[in-house]
Design a protein around this nucleic acid. Structure first.
Length: 1042
RNA sequence: GGGCGAUUAGCUCAGUUGGCUAGAGCGCCACGCUUACAACGUGGAUGUCGGGGGUUCGAGUCCCUCAUCGCCCACCA
């Protein structure tokens, strides 16, 4: 079947083309990478999306940017690997499956048991992984799908186990008791990073604790304040400051200093604080000093409700300037109190069960939930007259990011990675420049966080994840410990098994107390390197029990760049593609993920995981809020792709990716019946159905749950932000359509550079300039600027000028052949430059171009690559075509053209009416314009009657005055004198202002003396030009009839 | 409380080491369906560059300060 150019529709049918082209690329094997010593490698590992759900617009941005880089590098001839995959996302995924289980079957995970729950989660994973990978493909991502990984697959599991073992053996992993953030809903510890604070209004209870046997002059009660009264059941002390007078004094001095340094507006408030402090000192200090003395005297208090004696202690944590000056100490349930407890050697009483109910140590309150216990404790204390007062206050409460329920601090056994050396190595990699972070300002956050070197809690009380490969056994006597240690040392050595053991001694060192509490002397932990090692069975038969916990998701994510390449084996991939070239991610996981990949990479492979880190912006909605599915303001990339096409989505994303700003994307619903758009607001974004204000019909949203809502046609969630990009794609499509329509009789052949017209030279120059700019901008991750270059070049230069100018030549049989060859070549180059950003439309055009002009190029024609995806990236290594003189010459033409068009428009000259004009300018400019004058009839409906110095001004004239030339049109009979006068007057005033400004600048001696000569010269020139323009305008003004 | 970023046209944003007569897209106005494209073309209007001070011959750009917004970190029992 012969192809005819006239088959090309005037809209790019992206929905048909996208799957077809993607399949072509996949079948062509263009995504697959193999180590190839003849080529340089370029590699990226994808930030693996969580299998918690579908991708949102943030992922679309992240992956678009990666694909742009990958496609450019592939065209540049690198062996390009983009490693795809997904993350099991431990807590997040398990939480979602559990929530669903609860909603749909009213079951908890305990009803199912570990094995069945994990099976359910695997089903979930399969479903969402498929969906995620499909979304990536529809975005056009050129990942090496043959290498698709999952953080819980066998390859990653092996790397995880090996890493854990290595750290364990080197004593960089240990088990310890720590106060953890306990999520009572999910019944797991969550890391600090998974906790968010919310300000809520809550009670602030002031409680009285009776002093045991108060002596004369001593208070009968000490008063403590708390926002969590139920924790008093676990109090083991009350603290006062060791030297309240000194502490108050210091507080006073600090306040005085800030009063001195404050401005007027703050001063009053600070002064009030100071007064309050003085008053407090007067009223409280005597009591506090008394209490401090009592504490030093080891006096005790009676803990109400529990009837337990607790000591009054001194500790600087008790701030005399706050509250009553005394603070209750609950070491097992408050991070600060925990520190105090450790300092003072206090018992730590845990009153919580994992599910958030109170345990046996809570006495009569056992079995209650925290909320119930709070109510009861307060009631009981009130009944005893032990509540001093209750205030309402704004308090910051910690919540679990995963379950959105309040966090309870809880003392528990957890596994930790020692960060001291690991963190240092990761800091060094950045400070010594082996890893560069773009934009650079994120470097300090990375370094600050690592600098704290806080040990990393890696155990999670979950079922979905990498189970910790440790078997533990409690030991109750020294002799048992000796025997077991010896046995293990021997056994592990004899079998040659890769295993190691640690002995964790009980923190309670007092034998009697330990035995009373039923605690073991020590716990022996054995870590086995290989899964399925027979040793596992042996250990289990010897009374060892495998640790239930799984590892923090970030533990496996931290290995991603090397685990996906087969580490710990020394694979060819690792050798060739590692370290990867760049990591593209968003700023909120710089610490959680990026830093940990660096330290794990260094620890495991001995090399950094990537050379560069590019941090891209975050996507916000029209109100400036981050998008999230739970808020209902998220956009599904597939909606955008359906409506505008994948190319438009990609182009729009890249265009918005600036260096400093987050990306704001206002969101609209689109009515599925009439295509009306409805702005999304905080109000309507959570509705299950919306009634279209235009056609009045309802449509469903992502919240549709009831059958009646779910049955409605669903409205797409879109943003008009992508319209510009869609229009651009269409523009490119149509320019190409024009080109191909004129290539039906194309014949390949060489192009003689000497025969090139000015516009050809200009186009070649602009092509080269643009290619260089785009390449360097993308290498610096300046996506927005690169995109703008492409947009301006393609639309304005190529479509607006070059194609327009070729029309005349294509219609001329003498000039047609050269014009065709140039057109084919320039379009070819343009497609290459645009391909990374707009892969589909460019490939589609490339295929069609290939049907008519398979051999093309400048100066000699060559066979074009069969697929654009692997065509060579334009490079500036031939004979340089960039020519500033040509570009300047062309600019003169553009200016003159604009001026003529302006005159036509201003004077309302009918479109069909040709006009005549002249250009008054110096002879050199006239000579430069001369070869381009022939384009005025077709491009401006105007004929140039002359250009030069001696152009006479006609009686009725409406000039446009430009720097260096004056465009004169004889408009007798057409002119609106009054309008023209006011326009010229306005023009004159503007020029006068500019001239005045330049004059005063140039008459300033200091300017002339200090500014660089180049600047002064430029200013002089500008002044001259302005003066000439002013003169022209004034003479035109005078020539106007009264 | 500490840190980072932002504040430029009605909206969303550019604006390199100070040299600016401050730009783009969308929107707006006027004219045009000219056989690539009305998702288009041509032209036009629109800004005390958040406020105030300072450095400089010269500030949208550098410094100080205030205001507002956003994010991160650390936290008041």
């Amino acid at each position: 079947m012969t192809k005819t150019a006239h088959d090309i529709p005037n809209r790019f049918d992206f929905s048909a083309a996208q799957p077809r082209l993607y399949q072509m690329w996949e079948e062509g094997g263009f995504f697959h990478a193999e180590p190839d010593r003849l080529k340089k490698p370029f590699s990226i590992v994808i930030p693996p999306p969580n299998v918690t759900g579908a991708l949102h617009l943030g992922h679309a941005l992240n992956n678009t940017l990666q694909d742009i880089l990958v496609r450019m590098k592939r065209m540049q001839g690198y062996e390009t690997l983009w490693m795809p995959g997904t993350d099991h996302a431990g807590i997040a995924t398990q939480a979602r499956v559990e929530r669903r289980l609860r909603q749909e079957e009213n079951k908890s995970r305990h009803d199912l048991g570990r094995e069945l729950l994990v099976e359910r989660i695997w089903q979930w994973k399969e479903q969402y992984e498929r969906r995620i990978l499909d979304q990536l493909k529809r975005l056009g991502c050129s990942c090496d799908w043959e290498r698709t990984r999952f953080t819980l697959d066998e390859m990653c599991a092996r790397a995880v186990r090996h890493t854990f073992f290595d750290l364990f053996r080197n004593d960089r992993i240990y088990r310890g008791k720590r106060l953890v953030n306990w999520d009572t809903f999910l019944q797991t510890a969550v890391s600090d990073d998974e906790v968010f604070n919310e300000t809520v209004t809550g009670g602030f209870w002031h409680l009285r604790y009776p002093v045991l046997n108060p002596r004369k002059g001593e208070p009968e009660f000490v008063i403590v304040a708390t926002t969590r009264p139920e924790t008093m059941l676990a109090d083991t002390a009350v603290a006062v400051h060791p030297d309240p007078a000194a502490a108050l004094d210091r507080a006073r001095r600090e306040l005085e200093e800030s009063v001195a340094g404050a401005n007027q507006s703050e001063r009053a408030a600070l002064q009030a604080n100071l007064d309050a402090l003085s008053e407090r000192t007067r009223s409280h200090l005597p009591i506090l000093e008394r209490l401090t003395a009592m504490a030093r005297d080891a006096r005790r208090l009676r803990l109400p409700l529990m009837d337990r004696e607790i000591p009054l202690i001194v500790d600087p944590w008790a701030k005399p300037e706050l509250g009553s000056g005394c603070v209750k100490i609950t070491p097992a349930h408050d991070p600060n109190d925990h520190e105090v407890g450790l300092r003072a050697g206090l018992p730590m009483i845990n009153i919580l069960n994992p599910d958030g109910t109170l345990n046996g140590d809570a006495g009569n309150y056992e079995g209650l939930t925290i909320r119930e216990a709070r109510k009861r404790v307060v009631e009981d204390l009130e009944a005893l007259g032990l509540v001093e007062k209750i205030e309402q206050r704004q308090i910051e409460l910690p919540f679990s990011d995963r379950s959105k329920t309040p966090i309870e601090p809880l003392l528990a056994d957890q596994w930790f990675v020692r960060m001291e050396q690991l963190a240092q190595s990761a800091m060094d990699a950045v400070t010594d420049g082996r890893i560069a972070i773009f934009p650079n300002r994120y470097t300090s956050g990375y370094l600050d966080w690592l600098g704290e070197k806080r040990d990393w809690p890696v155990s999670r009380q979950l079922w979905w994840g990498h189970q910790i490969p440790v078997w533990s056994r409690a030991v109750h006597s020294e002799s048992e410990l000796r025997e077991l240690s010896a046995e293990l040392s021997d056994g592990l050595n004899i079998n040659g098994t890769s295993a190691a053991f640690q002995v964790e001694h009980c923190s309670e060192t007092d034998d009697a107390r330990r035995q009373q509490a039923g605690l073991p002397l020590a716990t022996v932990h054995v870590c086995v390197e290989q899964a399925g090692d027979p040793l596992e069975g042996i250990l289990e038969r010897s009374g060892f029990i495998r640790v239930d916990d799984v590892l923090d998701t970030w533990f496996s994510s931290a290995l991603w760049p090397h685990s996906t390449m087969g580490w710990p084996d020394k694979t060819a991939e690792l050798e060739y593609f590692y370290p990867t070239s760049v990591l593209v991610t968003s700023r909120d996981i710089i610490t959680l993920w990026v830093a940990r990949m660096v330290l794990m990479g260094l620890n495991n492979v001995g090399k950094i995981p990537f050379h560069e880190v590019y941090i891209h912006p975050k996507i916000l909605d029209g109100e400036g809020e981050t998008m999230s599915k739970s808020k209902g303001n998220g956009i599904d990339p597939l909606d955008v792709i359906d409506k505008f096409g994948a190319d438009a989505l990609r182009f729009g994303m890249a265009r918005l990716t600036t260096e400093t700003q987050d990306v704001r994307v206002p969101v609209q619903f689109e009515c599925p019946h009439c295509e009306a758009t409805i702005d999304q607001t905080r109000k309507n974004r959570e509705l299950p159905r919306i009634e279209c204000p235009r056609c009045g019909q309802p449509f469903g949203t992502q919240w549709a749950e009831q059958q009646s809502d779910a049955d409605l046609a669903r409205g797409l969630v879109l943003s008009e932000r992508f319209e510009t990009a869609r229009n651009f794609v269409n523009k490119l499509w149509n320019a190409s359509r024009f080109a191909i329509l004129h290539l039906d009789d194309y014949s390949p052949g060489s192009i003689d550079p000497d025969e090139l017209a000015i516009e050809d030279q200009w186009m070649l120059s602009r092509l080269e300039t643009t290619a260089v700019a785009v390449t360097t901008l993308l290498d610096k991750y300046l996506f927005s600027e690169a995109t703008r270059e492409l947009y301006d070049f393609a639309w304005r230069d190529f479509c607006g000028f070059y194609v327009e100018m070729l029309k005349d030549r294509l219609a001329d049989p003498v000039r047609r052949t050269l014009a065709q060859r140039m057109l084919a070549h320039c379009l070819d180059q343009l497609l290459r430059l645009l391909h990374p950003v707009l892969p589909f439309v460019t490939e589609e055009i490339w295929q069609r171009l290939g049907d008519f002009a398979p051999r093309r190029g400048f100066p000699e024609p060559m066979d074009a690559a069969g697929c654009l995806i692997v065509a060579a990236w334009p490079r500036a290594d031939g004979e340089p075509r960039h020519d500033p003189a040509i570009e300047e010459q062309f600019r003169l033409f553009q200016n003159a053209l604009g001026a003529v068009r302006e005159i036509r428009s201003r004077q309302n000259v009918p479109p069909r009416q040709q006009i005549r004009f002249a250009i008054r300018t110096d002879s050199q400019t006239a000579r430069l314009l001369e070869p381009l004058l022939g384009y005025f009839p077709s491009m401006a409906g105007a004929e140039c009657t002359g250009a030069g110095e001696s152009i006479r001004t006609p009686a009725m004239n409406a000039p446009v005055v430009l720097a260096g030339m004056e465009i004169i049109v004889d408009l007798e009979g057409l002119i609106d004198v009054a309008a023209e006068r006011s326009r010229l007057e306005k023009e004159r005033d503007k020029l006068l202002g500019s001239v005045r400004g330049k004059n005063s600048k140039l008459s300033n001696d200091r300017f002339v003396a200090n500014a660089p000569a180049e600047i002064v010269a430029r200013e002089r020139e500008a002044l001259q030009s302005l003066t000439r323009q002013l003169a022209s305008v004034e003479s035109a003004l005078q020539a106007l009839p009264e």
